[in-house]
Amino acid sequence: MKAFLSRISRFFMVLALLCVFIGGTSIRSLASEQEESKEELNLSEFIIHHVLDDHVWHFTNHLTIYLPVIVYSSERGLDIFSSRNFYDEYHNVINYDGYKLDHSHIYLADSGKAVLDLSITKNVAMLLITAVIMALIFISVGNAYKRNPGKAPKGLQSFFEPVIVFVRDEVVRPNIGPHYEKFLPYMLTLFFFILIGNLLGLLPGAGNLTGNIAVTGVLAVLTFLITNFKGNKDYWAHILWTPGVPLPLRPIILLVEVIGIFTRPISLMVRLFVAITAGHIVLLSLFCLTFIFSSIWVGFASSIIVLFINLIELMVAGIQAYVFTLFSSLYIGMAIAEHEHDHH
């Protein structure tokens, strides 16, 4: 247990050191963004806007990336255009080509019907960046293993090997059991996707990818599908006709168990979404105190607090990746466990 804690703490220390400076810059960039727009601010709207998805990637008023919009509707078919078309030169939202942008949702301007929005939004861009970074890192790590088999790891390989071994030995194997190896690739992808997504989300100007309910929902559904498709006879017997329970209670237990099937992925989805989004909201709220009090001293104090909250966020990034993988392993492990006895 001790070795295990020291391994975790060492891991987080490295991550913390990596990102302390990044935290600092994130505050500063937000500050400049705020000071430039002197208008009356609705701070809660501002904060929520920052944790939501968007069709533009806004760094400062002078640096905004207009992301491509991809929409499909039965009336208009597929349309691809730049989101710049939705803004005039004063950065006001305007209609374009019969499409209306309202609170990041796109509607048909004349009928008001929502279209299927497949745009490369800020979060989709973040998703692609995360995927590319992961592919680059882990394919290079995988090649390093292929290049010198049986040798001691070095470079990037030796940085990630302890984490991979940690996921395998502390998360996946103890919870899934002897058949863990089949699920290890999924669990490793899940862990590193959440971890890297969380960490990238803390970068200045980054999108809130892993704090988006659509993203966490998809991950939870994948775990849900694996759990129920890989679930064995014992698992279903346990749900449908729980052994060791008095007969009159069995229908009630059945109801509870069936609800349980669905509450597990929902808890996975909500936990990650809430932990990451709440972290971002806390950071932004503390930061916004400066503008509420309009005082440089409050800004100074809140910057210090935000710095420490940022460190906590780094920890949360790791913990949430760990917890999501842990619970996914646990659910799958429960579904494929082979019971030797009738009841427990």
Binding site: D53, L127, I213, A214
Partner: peptide, 12 residues
Amino acid sequence: LLTPDPGLILWQ
């Protein structure tokens, strides 16, 4: 915050 976008679900 609580309503997932179908586009992002698909992309994800």
